[in-house]
């Protein structure tokens, strides 16, 4: 009896294998296949939602960046405006101060001039009065040379006192 003898065993083997196949297909495999299917769906869903979230996050990031840029620009503008305003103000203040100083200087000069005129006028009156006085005195006394000299000295002295 050779090892290659084919007999009815072949039919039994085919039937046995098919029975095994049908049992497994009917009872054992469905839950596993279902689980595999569900898992692949679950993973697909997760990937999809992750992609969605990533897109959302990117959009939000872009929005934030735009906002930040705008805010920065605004801040820059505000600073620029403030700098310009302050510069203008300082120029104004300086020119005002300069004008004030000019004015004060001018008024001071005018006052000095006025005082000077006043002093000169007064001096003039004094000198006239003294001249009159001196003339009177000369006329009053019959003058001898000595007295004349004394008078002149006195006069000069008085003038010196005045100045």
């Amino acid at each position: 009896m050779g090892i290659l003898t084919i007999n009815a065993t072949i039919l039994v083997q085919i039937v046995s294998f098919l029975v095994l196949f049908f049992i497994l297909r009917k009872f054992a495999f469905p839950p596993l296949l279902e689980a595999l299917e569900k898992r692949s769906q679950y993973i697909e869903q997760n990937i999809k939602s992750a992609e969605q979230q990533k897109a959302d996050a990117e959009q939000i990031k872009a929005e934030y960046q735009a906002e930040l840029k705008q805010a920065r620009q605004e801040a820059h503008e505000i600073i620029e405006r403030a700098t310009k305003a302050s510069e203008e103000r300082s120029k104004e203040i300086i020119s005002e101060a300069r004008g004030e100083a000019e004015r004060m200087k001018k008024s001071a000069t005018a006052e000095i001039e006025l005082e000077k005129q006043k002093a000169l006028a007064e001096l003039r009156t004094q000198v006239a009065a003294l001249s009159v006085l001196a003339a009177g005195k000369i006329i009053e006394k019959n003058l001898d040379p000595a007295t004349q000299g004394a008078l002149v000295d006195e006069f000069i002295k008085e003038v010196g006192d005045l100045q």
Partner: peptide
């Protein structure tokens, strides 16, 4: 005529396959 040893061993194998497959699918965790 059937080869008795082959048949017995086939049944043992089938039993082993069934045990393995049902053990594998008894408590499915997704």
């Amino acid at each position: 005529d059937v080869n008795a040893r082959t048949l017995i061993m086939t049944w043992v194998t089938m039993l082993a396959v069934l045990i393995f497959c049902f053990a594998a699918t008894r408590k499915i965790s997704q």
